[in-house]
Design a protein around this nucleic acid. Structure first.
Length: 652
DNA sequence: GTTTAGGATTCG
């Protein structure tokens, strides 16, 4: 009953002039063997088109629809382009004239005469644009609805692909789908082919460098050299070699099910080095393969942005490093992208951490330290067997320098509740427009009709530039505080008190500057009136410690609190680290709101304690530790804390 | 006109 379209012998679909054309789509739970149907579905699995052992290209596609029934389809075509243009799991496809047969007692789809497909992006809210190589095809309001309905269903029933990652997020011994740009390619030998690619981010370990003959690399060598370890080497094998050979340098690719492996490699100096290997193994299991992405692909847009903003300055070697590089030979072949592998050599031969003082001290083995009484100070050399907590946000705490208490950083949700409660109070108009500040009041557009008052603090009676201006805000929500703090120098959340504006609460930050939320100690602070800020107006700098003092706040300091399990082969010792910024050279106050700092910290911890390999290959850490006694009840315990130690600067 | 592959990681 679906053959009406091919009366003139057209195998492609034609734009129908007849108003009655109406395709019927069979839900996937109603398929019968021996029929030819039209179906819609969300792609749950796919193999990008590859050359079969027969005459055709092949693509295997598994789809699912709202009936939650899956259907695996075998699609063959003499032409690559005629197969569905699927880029990722979650894409939506429409198949016309799909034959249903039974294989292993299950329905299976296979293309039949006149087969045609459309593919759509599966993301909610993106434009519904069909991808197809068909010159003519039927596309109606019904199709639009089908796609939208599947998108909505998929958004709650299909988890987005977890294998799509950037290089900065790859871990060893995993399989990933990588979106990247091809920078160079080279024949290696008969059994493998090399692709040099990048995505604008840096892997947690330097990429391996595959040895190739001089002059066989196709690509801009100087560009590749300039990018240094922003590029990775991928070896592809067997059936992928032909595809890789045909790729154009500069094109954008998605490489499916790329395997990462961490290897320790022996250098000439007999120390082991860590390298991240990338392999695209032979075969098509798990959809292994390569697909060229078109320029107009939305993921390519994102990739281009990442490439443009790639931090080239961060990878320029300093003079210091260049000098050292001569002492640390690289593994790369002559002539093909000689890359600085300085970092890893540095941390494995010397130490990934260094002392900032006490260099005169002799090293003590851990077994000796464990036998001695506290308090003492030691210089040690050990490896980081493990550390706690694993999650970064759990390691950041607030520390009071006065009462030494440690507190959790308030959660966003709790903060929002406090702000919402405060917003129920109406700003007192008598406290507005004083000699200290000019005030403006808004009413929110939502149903709550919330009153928001902003008080702009003046300097000598004049309003400063917003980038230098301190504002006090009443009734603001978290998102508003965040927006205002990016525009204004400083933001203080306040409320109307009986006689003056007062700080909202020490549950909330007493000061926000940019990304940093400053909190005060509830035990140690004794709040003073807001008018006290007038003593700071002339300075106009709004230094957090000065603001805190004027308002009677004892400010809390952001710290990393972590436990390191250290092992030097003679013994194992738990030492804790409390660090504001010295050890990691990353400010604990900024790390929770800065993705780049979080990545840096992850990289450091990955370098100290690389996942998936034996402790022998971990780098050494040189640390200064203090022992001290802790009494709990009648029991005495010796604890250890890391001091005066920092991550080696050339590792950051 | 038939075969290809029939999802289910390499072992380099």
């Amino acid at each position: 009953m679906f053959f009406g379209k091919s009366v003139r012998g057209l195998s492609t679909e034609s734009m129908s002039l007849a108003p009655t054309t109406n395709y019927i789509y069979t839900p996937l739970n109603q398929l019968k063997g021996g029929t030819v149907v039209n179906v819609y579905g969300v792609v749950k699995f796919f193999k990008p088109p590859y050359l079969s052992k027969g005459t055709d290209y092949c693509s295997v596609v598994t789809i699912v629809d709202q009936t939650n029934v899956k259907l695996t389809c075998l699609l063959f075509s003499r032409s690559y382009e005629a197969l569905p243009i699927i880029y990722k799991i979650g894409d939506i496809v429409r198949f016309h004239r799909l034959k249903i047969q039974v294989y292993k007692n299950e329905p299976q789809g296979i293309n039949s005469s006149g087969f045609a497909s459309l593919t759509f992006e599966g993301t909610l809210g993106t434009p519904v644009i069909p991808r197809t190589s068909s010159k003519c095809f039927n596309f109606t309001a019904q199709d639009h609805k089908m796609v939208e309905a599947l998108r909505v269903w998929a958004s709650t029933h299909i988890s987005p692909s977890s294998t799509l990652v950037q290089l900065c997020d790859v871990q060893p011994m995993q399989y990933y789908d990588l979106t990247c740009q091809l920078l160079g390619k080279a024949e290696v030998d008969g059994t493998s082919f090399l692709l040099k690619v990048w995505d604008g981010t840096r892997t947690p370990f330097p990429s391996w460098r595959v040895l190739i003959q001089d002059l066989v690399l196709e690509g801009d060598l100087s560009h590749i050299q300039r990018l240094q370890n922003l590029t990775i080497d991928i070896l592809v094998y067997d059936n992928h070699i032909q595809v890789a050979k045909s790729l154009k340098v500069g094109s954008f690719l998605r490489i499916y099910s790329l395997h990462t492996k961490l290897q320790s490699v022996n250098s000439e100096t007999q120390t082991s080095l860590l390298r991240l290997e990338f392999h695209l193994h032979g075969g098509t299991s798990y959809g292994r393969g390569i697909r060229v992405l078109p320029e107009n692909n939305s993921d390519v847009d994102q990739l281009k942005k990442a490439l443009e903003s790639a931090d080239l300055t961060a990878i320029q070697p300093s003079d210091d490093q260049l000098e050292n590089e001569e002492n640390f030979p690289t593994l790369s072949s002559s002539g093909s992208g000689s890359v600085s592998l300085y970092e890893v050599e540095r941390c494995q031969q010397l130490s990934a951490t260094i002392l900032t003082d006490h260099q005169y001290l002799e090293k003590t083995p851990l077994c000796a330290i464990l036998k001695q009484k506290a308090p003492q100070q030691y210089r040690i050399r050990a490896k980081l067997r493990s550390y706690k907590p694993k999650r970064l946000f759990q390691s950041v705490k607030l520390h009071c320098p006065k009462c030494h208490s440690l507190q959790e950083v308030p959660y966003e949700n709790d903060l929002e509740t406090i702000l919402q409660d405060a917003a129920t109070k109406t700003p007192n108009s008598k406290l507005q427009n004083t000699s200290l500040y000019d005030s403006k009041v808004w009413t929110s557009k939502d149903q709550r009709k919330r009153k928001v008052a902003i008080h702009f603090v003046k300097n000598s009676g004049i309003l400063p530039l917003s980038s230098e201006c301190l504002i006090l805000i009443e009734g603001g929500m978290l998102s508003e505080l965040s927006k205002l703090s990016s525009k204004f120098h400083s933001v203080i959340p306040v409320q109307s008190g009986p006689e003056d504006l007062e700080l909202l609460s020490l549950e909330a930050p007493f000061l926000i500057q940019g990304n940093v939320y400053h909190y005060g100690c509830k035990q140690c602070s004794s709040l003073k009136p807001i008018q006290n800020l007038s003593s700071l107006v002339d300075e106009g700098l709004w230094v957090p410690s000065a603001v805190a003092e004027a308002l009677g706040v004892v400010p809390l300091q952001y710290v990393f609190v972590m436990t390191f399990t250290l092992d030097d082969g003679t013994g194992v010792l738990e030492a804790y680290l409390m660090d504001y910024d010295k050890f990691f050279q990353i400010r604990a106050s900024e790390v929770l709101t800065d993705d780049n700092l979080q990545r840096s910290l992850d990289m450091i911890m990955n370098m100290f304690c690389p996942p998936g390999i034996k402790i022998d290959t971990y780098p050494w850490l040189e640390c200064f530790i203090k022992s001290y006694n802790v009494t709990s009840g009648v029991e005495q315990q010796i604890c250890y804390q890391i001091f005066d130690t920092t991550v080696a600067e050339d590792l950051i």
